[in-house]
Design a protein around this nucleic acid. Structure first.
Length: 302
DNA sequence: GAGTCGTGGTG
DNA sequence: TCACCAAGACT
């Protein structure tokens, strides 16, 4: 790599001390439960949308035991429009597991954390580091992008996490425990605020003069075209619309009303998408996001 | 490993 | 405008 790792550390850590955002789950008073909740909510969802929901969530369910005692439906409703509502179900299941298997306390090892529903390699490393001060290798999309640019000289990281990404990230984590924790949060922050996917703010970057991508003239992406996520008319749109209808009422809804209102909200032709909507509804029931009740009606699960 | 799973902001 | 993207996990 172009610059010694120690230079990366010094530059990024100094930058972080001066430019870190103030976030409620990082205020030093938030316990491991609050950190876990934030990490689950932040999976594929921007900070600005998570913040208000996290605050309300922590006020309502300040402990794993509190959430574990709640119904799935209420949890999905409180999840609001953060997206991927199965995360809400898994967070509740994780709370149940914490109560039953960990004496109500969020585990402090990556292995135990990984055993919780909805907690993968990233979230386990993040919670172990940020909530428990452990030395872990945190590899999220921000870390991968910063390293791809600064070290590898590429415009973008690979579409998905690769073994090479993990190897590179591992090699850059400081040996000292306390420093490793700061590095992990700092490099993520740099990726989120400065080394952004679109419109990177290179003039503000502490790595500007050591960045391999900048040194190469900031070449555009050389890889295959990045395929966007289709949306209009997809199952995801229909599923989202179905759940949203149920989120807005505390009562059960007849199938025809539910499907009709969802397709209308989605701007989809009822005749053309009826079959798809029925299939999506069955999938939602399968996933535990929707509960059928007598009389061909549906509601969020009690 | 490739697909699937929400939602809304934005360059 | 509209394709792209956001602190991924799971199958």
């Amino acid at each position: 790599m172009a610059a010694p790792v120690s230079v990366l550390h010094e530059r990024v850590l100094t930058w972080f001390d001066a430019h870190r955002r103030v976030l409620p789950w990082r205020d030093g008073r938030t316990d491991a439960w609050g950190v876990l909740v934030s990490e689950i909510m932040l999976q594929q969802t921007p900070v600005v949308r998570v913040e208000p929901v996290w605050r309300a969530w922590m006020e309502r369910w300040p402990t794993p035991a509190a959430l574990a005692a709640e119904t799935p439906g209420e949890v999905v409703r409180a999840w609001g429009r953060l997206g991927y509502p199965r995360r809400a179900l898994r967070l509740r299941e994780a709370a149940v597991a914490v109560v039953r298997e960990h004496d109500g306390r969020v585990p402090d090892t990556e292995e135990a954390l990984r055993g919780l529903p909805g907690v993968g390699s990233y979230t386990a490393a993040a919670v172990a580091a940020f909530a428990h001060g452990r030395r872990t290798v945190v590899v999220d999309t921000n870390v991968r992008r910063v390293l791809a640019r600064a070290v590898q000289g590429r415009a973008h990281a690979a579409p998905a996490l690769t073994a090479a990404d993990t190897r590179l990230a591992t090699a850059t984590v400081p040996a000292d425990v306390a420093t490793s924790v700061r590095w992990n949060v700092a490099v993520m922050e740099l990726g989120a605020v400065v080394c952004r996917a679109r419109g990177p703010r290179c003039p503000e970057c502490p790595l500007l003069d050591v960045c391999a991508w900048v040194a190469a003239g900031s070449p555009p992406d050389d890889g295959p075209p990045r395929r966007g996520q289709a949306w209009h008319g997809t199952d995801r749109q229909v599923r989202g619309a179905l759940v949203q209808v149920l989120r807005e009422t505390s009562r059960s809804v007849p199938r025809d009303d539910l499907v009709g209102r969802a397709l209308e909200a989605a701007g989809l032709d009822p005749a053309r998408h009826r079959e798809q909507a029925d299939r999506c509804l069955a999938g939602l029931v399968e996933d535990g996001l929707v509960e059928p009740v007598r009389g061909g009606r549906f509601r969020l699960p009690a």
